[in-house]
Design a protein around this nucleic acid. Structure first.
Lengths: 153, 153
DNA sequence: TTAGTACTGAAAACGGTTTTCATTTGCCCG
DNA sequence: CGGGCAAATGAAAACCGTTTTCAGTACTAA
């Protein structure tokens, strides 16, 4: 994976080249210091609060697209119509346990699907290239908080 | 799970009650005879081609919501911004292998996550209540079709 | 400096989904 | 046999995250 700085010449015709533009660097900085998953809007607001001339929403989206393609960021879809993003080690990815009450999430330390690829390949003759896996439920604290009276959520 | 016919009196305040309305029955009929996953639009067009006074798109969406809540239908999100639906045995669910080229999909015959719930519970003290899992790649035919020259898609 | 290309931002377009609201439907009950 | 009501319905508008358009800017190479 060859990450260069912006403005070299490339002949790719995509929306933008796969280089770290100024905007993309700022976006990456935000993600670097965030543990939780961030939406494009989250990132945009974060930048608005700290930059004198923050990148616009459009640039944030475009930067995220590049960063995802570079393998520095993964996008996560919880099926709620809003994509979230987070940093990953280049080329890696992981999944989450997402608490339905407090909305916090923890990374799973291993990819459960990867282990299954071989058997899926064998059984279905299907070449696995990607997957979505997110798990929802209640984290420890929220379980306790709900235990006394079965209300809320 | 108590599925009744429409127009009984209920005191739920949701968008609509959890009964099989006329529209919902038509929607269910479409899903009943479809193997592939269908979007709301798919279902709507299917009905337009065969009903004299087909339910509108709005009703299709509302029906799907009820059917999902009744456990008769599951909604599937591939992260491409369009939800698909399919019939399931009440209370059950399953996942798919989706071919990225021909877009066909096959059901997995068992839920891979269910088997993991116990260990997730033990390791993370997390109470699993739901999950998203979809696997993308190439089906057998499309692998072969792409083998000769590595073009396409 | 100049030319060329990538980057950027504002606004508009997009597309699936949801909401609004006025109308219709069908059951209950007198 | 209606009248009354709550639920269901449809058309149109609103929503909302995301993408596209397009004109202006910034950077790099030469």
């Amino acid at each position: 994976m060859n990450v260069q700085s912006s403005h070299g010449h490339s002949h790719s015709k995509g929306p933008q080249s796969l280089r770290l533009t100024k905007g993309a660097k700022k976006v990456l900085e935000v993600l670097e210091r965030t543990d939780e998953l961030s939406s494009a809007q989250d990132i945009h607001s974060a930048l608005r609060n700290e930059e004198d001339s923050p990148p616009g929403l459009t640039t944030v989206y475009r930067s995220l697209e590049s960063l995802v393609q570079l393998g520095l960021v993964q996008s996560v879809d919880f099926g709620d119509g809003e994509r979230r993003y987070e940093m990953v080690k280049p080329g890696e990815h992981h999944h989450h346990l997402v608490c339905e009450k407090c909305r916090n999430s923890v990374h799973l330390d291993q990819c459960l699907v990867q282990q299954l690829e071989e058997s899926i390949q064998a059984k279905y003759k299907f070449e696995v290239r990607g997957h979505i896996l997110e798990i929802f439920g209640l984290c420890e604290q929220c379980q306790q908080a709900m235990a006394p009276a079965g209300k809320n959520q």
